[in-house]
């Protein structure tokens, strides 16, 4: 990446004069000088837009929280109804992410290693939960799993109720998290050199041993990234859950819904307090995902 120091004076070279402002930003920020123009303009616009749309509004949420008294904040975030909603949201998200980790790994393996009729179609369909609006997913899953639904009617005689129970929340969260694990693990499996597996096999390892001792460790960072991404997405999910959960306080009420309920009752303080908790959790998960991706990237680069 190191460039020739002879071409570091872009103004002379390209005849395009730079403004003083641009010279200053480049001198301060750039680690390496570049002949390409437009750094100041591009970065300036990106930062302005980022601040206006994302950073200032998010900062507003924290500032609003700062105006709450500590007692008020604590009461809002530890209210029994709120705590019940955390338990459901985080519990169901965790189980959904685990289901997706197991099935996502199997699906990624099947898509990367086997060929069978309809594979291309299946591969394209994986992203459906990303593309399908959450409200559509919500009403559809409710129709599938309600007592008279396509699948719900066969579960009912067994005493299994899905729609309007915590189990329904789990189904919705599994649906929306489905693509994450598949899409992070699949490329790693595709890039994996089959030679190391052949080496393991020729050294006498059984297939099972090769998979658990050779392939799984290589896939692990990507699997964890996918798992955490699915979990993070599920924690914040609203649209697909509200229809299937039935929204009973203490039983099937998720935290994002509680925020909306508080807003509708003009309890801005309560809504803000819970939103801050959610936001801090999302930030922590985002940092974790970034760390995992970095680890995963380093592992791949070392291969």
């Amino acid at each position: 990446m190191r460039r020739d120091s002879a071409i570091t004076c872009p103004g002379e070279l390209t005849g395009s004069p730079r403004s003083l402002c641009e010279e200053i930003t480049m001198a301060f920020l750039l680690k390496q000088p570049s002949v390409l123009p437009g750094f100041g303009l591009a970065l300036g616009f990106a930062l302005l837009y980022l601040s206006l749309i994302v950073l200032i509004p998010l900062a507003g949420l924290f500032m609003k929280t700062a105006t709450l008294a500590w007692d008020q904040f604590w009461a809002a975030v530890t209210d029994p109804r709120t705590v019940a909603s955390y338990q459901l949201t985080f519990g169901a998200s965790l189980v959904a992410a685990m289901i997706n980790a197991v099935f996502g790994l199997i699906i990624a393996w099947v898509l990367a290693r086997y060929s069978f009729p309809g594979k291309k179609l299946l591969d394209a369909l994986i992203d459906l939960p990303f593309a399908l609006p959450t409200a559509v997913a919500g009403i559809t899953l409710t129709a599938v799993f309600s007592v008279n639904g396509w699948i719900g009617r066969y579960l009912e005689p067994w005493g299994i109720k899905v729609a309007f129970t915590p189990f329904g929340v789990l189904v919705a969260l599994t649906f929306i998290g489905l693509p994450f694990v598949v899409r992070t693990v699949q490329p790693v499996l595709q890039d994996l050199e089959t030679q190391i597996e052949e080496a393991a096999a020729s050294l006498g390892a059984t297939r099972w041993k090769t998979i658990t001792r050779v392939i799984l460790p290589e896939v692990l960072p990507a699997l964890l990234t996918g798992f955490t991404s699915a979990f993070a997405r599920a924690v914040g999910e609203y649209g697909s859950v509200v229809f299937i959960s039935g929204n009973m306080p203490m039983r099937t009420e998720i935290t994002p819904l509680l925020i909306i309920t508080k807003l509708e009752q003009y309890d801005y303080a309560g809504a803000t307090a819970i939103a801050v908790v959610m936001l801090v959790v999302s930030f922590a998960l985002l940092l974790l995902i970034n760390g995992l991706q970095w680890w995963s990237g380093r592992r791949l680069a070392a291969l």
Binding site: A46, L47, L50, V54, L55, P57, L58, G60, L61, K64, T134, A232, V235, G236, E237, Y238, G239, P256, L257, I259, I260, L263, Y268, A271, T272, A275, M278, L279, S282, F283, L285, L286, L287, I289, N290
Partner: peptide, 22 residues
């Protein structure tokens, strides 16, 4: 900067709406 660009993905949709209400 790259992490900040990803921020809206990790924020719950409900919280995304709430920040504008506030």
């Amino acid at each position: 900067l790259v992490t900040l660009i990803d921020l809206p993905f990790s924020v719950s949709p409900v919280v995304s709406g709430l920040i504008y209400v506030l």
